[in-house]
């Protein structure tokens, strides 16, 4: 829960899981960032799908990510929107395992000065409802990285 979001007068758009993505959202409720890895070619991928996007193998399994990432790209959105009243980051993070995902960077100033690209990040989860927890990222702290 971030201070910024606590102030928001509206709610974020809520994701609606499908059978192919349910494991991901089950994972975030348990504090896990679940990627998938191919048994045949070892490719680790996101977003979820029940086959490998690299070799089309259906033999894939869940691979829990470390939660460590770096900031790959980021804009500061100045337009109010669902869940946000104040300027906020819209970022793409690159996970240690390779895949990239969109997120918000929280627990720091929402400025480019505070959000240099390639900065180390770590995952955190915001509970949006009984069934959805959203993965967000915050600046890495050396003591918390080894989880």
């Amino acid at each position: 829960m971030t201070a910024d979001n606590a102030k928001a007068t509206t709610s974020r758009r809520m994701p609606m899981p499908t059978p192919e993505t349910q494991h991901f959202w089950d994972g975030t409720l348990e504090g896990e960032l679940r990627l998938q890895r191919c048994d045949d070619c070892a490719h680790t991928y996101f977003p979820p799908r029940p086959f490998c996007p690299k070799c089309a193998s259906r033999s894939v399994q869940i691979a829990v990510a470390s939660g460590r990432a770096t900031l790959h790209a980021c804009v500061i959105n100045h337009r109010p929107g669902p869940g946000f009243d104040e300027p906020h980051s819209i970022a793409v993070v690159e996970l240690e395992e390779g895949p990239r995902m969109m997120s918000n960077i929280v627990d720091c100033e929402q400025t480019h000065d505070a959000l240099p690209l390639d900065m180390p990040l770590e995952v955190t989860f915001e509970q949006l409802s009984d069934t959805i927890a959203l993965p967000l990222f915050k600046p890495a702290t050396s003591t918390e990285v080894a989880s």
């Binding site: 758009r13 994701p15 993505t21 980021c74 929107g81 869940g83």
Partner: peptide
């Protein structure tokens, strides 16, 4: 709401192309 972009991009508050197209 079940599309991949609705699940994995929309919750982060993008307000249309100005906040998405600009990222790269």
């Amino acid at each position: 709401a079940t599309s991949l972009s609705s699940q994995f991009e929309a919750p982060y508050g993008p307000m249309g192309p100005p906040t998405l197209f600009t990222l790269p």
